[in-house]
Write a protein that binds this DNA or RNA. Structure first.
Lengths: 344, 344
DNA sequence: TTGTAAGCGTTATCAG
DNA sequence: CTGATAACGCTTACAA
């Protein structure tokens, strides 16, 4: 008794109609008499028939799938973004093909090619790591955009069929730095772990604020942490090392909540009183900010808002509408226990 | 000038061979003369041709895709698991279709149906939430297993074409509880936030350990937190409330690191000295355990190991091999600063 | 309102 | 070693 997967032919036979009619009821297509529709639906229910997605894909040239690329789906921030994308897309009938690429350019290229060969309808690049300072390294994005719309979260690339949604990182770090300075901090350390596009913007924000505040900065104030995203120990240790090498700082502004948390741990190990002796500002306003005591003041770049907007733009593009190529949101500074910022 | 996507016919024409031959070189199939192979490859390179995945899927009845279901891809633990799955699968030529279902049964059913209708080659259910105490609620898993192999991470269901990989949650909590008791703790509170399959095992482990230690437990010692996974505040508040209602406890064993972290915050707010007055053990040994001071002793259930094993079992099943239906790993107790456990 | 038939782009089975 | 040709299961003009 060979298992015969039920096809549209079986249904047509059982219902006593042609396959075209079956297809019509399947697609809620125009003009099917209530009577035959019922017959067909009955046959479908009886057999448990489901249309073959490949055949359908072949005919329609789409399987309603969006490729989501991210360096690391287990990163707190990226994971959140993926979550929102997946949710929004599915609510609109699209599935998500996920690719975690790591941080190597060649792996990103490979993943994007693979997604395109699998005929995704669009591609979302989650996180600023996909855009490189050297324009040449961004060619692969243009390549992809020739085939399908490419959406960037927290990054910016100009081009046909490329759409960007981001948070104004320069502005938010600028404002945060200013507040720190205005509340009396002279020696602010900038602690970062990414040299991506948005990473540069953040750093720029810091530099510009210091400049506008008339405070000289030295390169030692810029601490780059080059290790795992989860290595809180290592992060604290680096601050400790910098301090014992003579670097003075009474505040840290971090490009990421993890770094901020490590700064809190560092300061507490030193016996500093937060926020009186020492201030910290993080980035992303993730749950990590609530994990220590006092809780961490952090920049909230509203990932949910960004993701929902990005998705709606993508859906618009896919249905042929004209959509904005670039959308920028302002971030909020969420003040908690690691700062005492004078004014608003 | 209409854009004509290049097909196998174009290649066959350009190379002066039949489409069958093109297909053969495409699939490294047997017996193609070196000469014609070259011609075909040249034509392919010249045109930038890529095979149409849908057509291929139609013929082969697979697009080498695995459906990954999880309640919440932004949960720290689940996100890690997804990361490992995706990585392992892609290295073996499979893509991952991700579905975040939330915690509602009906949404899980819908998602699984959708994945099957998209013709995935297998399904991975990530996290114990997919298995319900009431067997009736697990029918949907059997339904899926009739179509494709179903893999469960941290859950157990017996059935054809269903494979389970898990960590021995009962054992690990049992051992952790015992250590706590042996190191002098009489009033251990069990703090949990899930009633899933593995949740029950953990609780069982706690109960059995207490029983074997000859310590009576009251139901008040079992605190269930029914809120967001990220609501550290709420979690601490619940402990505070229980305490002020007269519940005495000098240790917390948590079903999750988040809860453990909230216990640390609670104890520190109370001014307790950890680990001298108060001990805490978490679960998952996630980065959260390193976020506070002292750092949290936690049960490491080796998610990476589990995921890699699960994937290799799935791959085995897909290639027709006989594979173990149930694989259980022992967890480790990683002792850090929130406990002082006497012996090993 | 319904049916017929022509694709969609592969793979696989035969012959040659 | 290579070429016809029949699936694969569905959508969609075009006819009726």
């Amino acid at each position: 008794m060979k298992e015969h997967t039920v096809t549209i032919y079986d249904i047509s036979e059982k219902a006593g109609v042609s396959i075209a009619t079956v297809s019509r009821v399947l697609n809620n297509s125009s003009n099917v008499s209530e009577n035959t529709r019922k017959k067909v639906l009955a046959a479908i229910k009886e057999t448990g028939y489901t249309p073959n997605a490949f055949a359908r894909g072949l005919g329609l040239n789409t399987m309603k799938t969006i490729g989501i690329l991210t360096a690391d789906s287990s990163d707190l921030y990226l994971a959140k973004a993926i979550y929102y994308f997946e949710e929004e897309l599915r609510e609109n009938g699209y599935d998500s093909l996920l690719c975690c690429t790591g941080y190597e350019l060649k792996d990103k290229k490979a993943a994007i090619d693979l997604l395109i060969s699998k005929k995704v309808d669009g591609i979302i690049l989650v996180g600023s790591h996909f855009v490189y300072p050297d324009a040449c390294d961004n060619k692969y994005i243009y390549g992809a955009s020739e085939k399908v719309p490419v959406m960037l979260l927290n990054a910016e690339v100009e081009g046909d069929n490329i759409y960007c949604v981001s948070s104004d990182d320069h502005d938010s770090v600028y404002r945060a730095t200013m507040k720190l300075v205005e509340s009396g901090h002279k020696n602010v350390l900038y602690y970062y772990n990414t040299t991506s596009y948005s990473g540069h913007l953040k750093e720029r924000g810091f530099r510009d604020a210091m400049k506008d505040a008339g405070i000289e900065v030295t390169e030692r104030q810029f601490q780059f942490f080059d290790g795992s995203n989860e290595d809180i120990h290592g992060m604290s240790a680096q601050l400790e090392k910098a301090a014992s090498a003579g670097l003075k700082f009474d505040a840290v502004i971090a490009s990421d909540d993890t770094l901020a948390l490590s700064a809190v741990k560092y300061a507490q190990a030193k016996g500093y009183n937060i926020p009186d002796d020492f201030s910290v500002i993080g980035y992303n306003n993730s749950m990590l900010t609530n994990c220590c005591d006092p809780e961490i003041t952090s920049i909230d770049n509203k990932v949910e808002t960004l993701c929902k907007h990005l998705t709606s733009i993508l859906l618009g593009v896919l249905s042929g509408e004209e959509m904005p190529k670039k959308t920028v949101f302002k971030a909020d500074i969420i003040e908690k226990g690691t700062t005492r910022l004078n004014k608003d």
